[in-house]
Amino acid sequence: MKDRNPVVELDGLTLATRSRQPLVSGVSFRVEAGASLGLVGESGSGKSLTLRSIIGLLPSGVQRVGGQIRRSGSCAMIFQDPIRALDPLCPVVGQLAEVVYYRQRVSRKAARSIALELLEMLGLPDSLRTKDRYPHQLSGGQCQRIVIAMALACKPDLLLCDEPTTALDVTVQRQILDLIARLQKELGYAVVFVTHNLAVASSMCSELCVMKEGRIVEQGDTLQLLRDPQHSYTRMLMNSVLPLPELERRADP
């Protein structure tokens, strides 16, 4: 794996506000083609900012003051709240076709049929083909599928996921995660996955970075890290995952 080219490489990334208050300091990691990396940490630990800096989406007032981001290939992002990530006044299929049109440089008609193919690939209902549907008419899970379809329309080498399941119903979360993982196998994009949920991150990613207060406190292979956490914060995160009580009791001798 090590000989492959990294899709993205962060080297001592440091972000700060205009008043020089540090938000992220010295974050370094690399993601190889097809690999997946999880950024885990509590809210405010800078994981989202780190992710957004990769695609150049820093909120106004935050700037990069040090370090380097080396990226090769195309890159797309999936957002936390899918309904807010879509234009409320534009039919979803139209939005998807528009992305296809601009990213794949095909005719409008071809863009629409590619868009419809994407819908099928993501398991969206057929009713979208015939009727114009707006984001508010779809469920959160369906909207997230549309957002993923829009990201895939860019043919990304790197998919950035910013807590893509946090705003969704619990029953849908699993489906969306499975979808991202399945398509990763099929299409071979690399994933950087931001979440505060250690269970989600460990099921999705082969490598984890635990972040706290803008720094990476622990970094390594997922299994190794979970088996033998070095940092107290990692242990705390692991303890915060609630086990299912019924199963727990049965496991007791």
């Binding site: 695609i55 957002f79 709240d81 879509l86 601009y102 990201a151 860019c154």
Partner: peptide, 16 residues
């Protein structure tokens, strides 16, 4: 709003 940022990251031209 997020959807404008999303549209930008997806590579739509600004005028569009």
């Amino acid at each position: 709003q997020e959807w404008i940022a999303a549209a930008r990251t997806l590579g739509l031209p600004n005028i569009k």
